[in-house]
C-alpha cells in the first residue's frame, strides 16, 4: 500500500496506537501516540522498511534512591526493549536513526512540575541516543502543547501535530500519564514496561 498517498487522518485511523509505557515495531502499519510531558522516540532503519516507536516518562520522584534509579531503569528498559525488538526483526543498529518528540507542559497550573518532567525526559532521550550512537535527525521538544505523533514505518516519515488541548482533554491526558507514573512507582523491582 502506498502510504504516502494517504492523508494524515487516514494514516491516523489505520495506525496502531501506543500508550504510556508501551512500544511497538512494525514493517508497514503506521504507529501513533498522544503525548503530554512523556517522550516518544521513533527509531527507523534507513535501508530496511522497519521502524518502531515507544512512549515513556521518567517521573520526578519525591524519594531519592533507590526509587529514582529504578525509574531511570524503566526509561532505559523502554528504550532497550524498542531497540532489541527492532534488531530481532531485522534492523541493523548501525543504520538506525531517531526522531523524538514530547516533553510538553499541557496544563498551565502544573507548568512548573510538568515542565521539569518534560526537560528530564528530553535530556534523558538525548543522552541515551548519544550513548548508543544513534543519530537524532529530528526533534520537537517542550513547549505548552500536547502532541500527536504518527510514524510511517516503510519510509520512517513522521508527522507531528502540536495540539492546543482544551482543559478537559489536557486533564484526561495528564491523568493517563499519572496512572502510568503510579504504575512505575509500584514497579520498584525494575520490571520492564508492557508492549503491545
Amino acid at each position: 500500500m502506498d502510504l504516502t498517498a494517504l492523508t494524515t487522518r487516514e494514516i491516523e485511523r489505520m495506525s496502531r496506537q501506543i500508550r504510556p509505557g508501551e512500544w511497538a515495531v512494525e514493517k508497514e502499519r503506521p504507529i501513533s501516540t498522544l503525548l503530554g510531558s512523556c517522550v516518544a522516540v521513533c527509531l527507523y532503519d534507513t535501508a530496511v522498511p522497519i521502524a518502531g516507536m515507544n512512549h515513556f516518562m521518567l517521573p520526578r520522584m519525591r524519594r531519592p534512591h533507590p526509587a529514582s534509579r529504578d525509574i531511570l531503569l524503566a526509561g532505559e528498559a523502554c528504550m532497550a526493549a524498542l531497540l532489541e525488538a527492532l534488531l530481532e526483526q531485522g534492523a541493523s543498529k548501525s543504520r538506525l536513526q531517531a526522531k523524538a518528540f514530547g516533553g510538553g507542559c499541557v496544563v498551565d497550573i502544573a507548568l512548573k512540575e510538568t515542565g521539569s518532567i518534560g526537560k528530564l525526559n528530553t535530556d534523558f532521550t538525548r543522552e541515551w541516543l548519544l550513548r548508543e550512537n544513534i543519530p537524532l535527525t529530528a526533534s520537537d521538544f517542550l513547549g505548552p502543547w500536547s502532541r500527536k505523533v504518527l510514524l510511517v514505518p516503510p519510509s520512517g516519515a513522521v508527522y507531528c501535530k502540536r495540539q492546543v488541548s482544551s482543559m478537559i482533554n489536557a486533564e484526561v491526558l495528564q491523568r493517563e500519564e499519572q496512572v502510568y507514573t503510579a504504575s512505575l512507582r509500584s514497579q520498584q523491582q525494575g520490571r520492564t514496561p508492557s508492549h503491545g
Binding site: G115, K119, S139, L142, G143, P144
Partner: peptide
Amino acid sequence: FSLSGSLKPGEDGAPSLDMV
C-alpha cells in the same frame, strides 16, 4: 490567538524544534 505566547525561546520549557 495562540497559547504559546507565554514561553519565549531560551526560557525554561520553551519549545525546541530541529531537524537534519
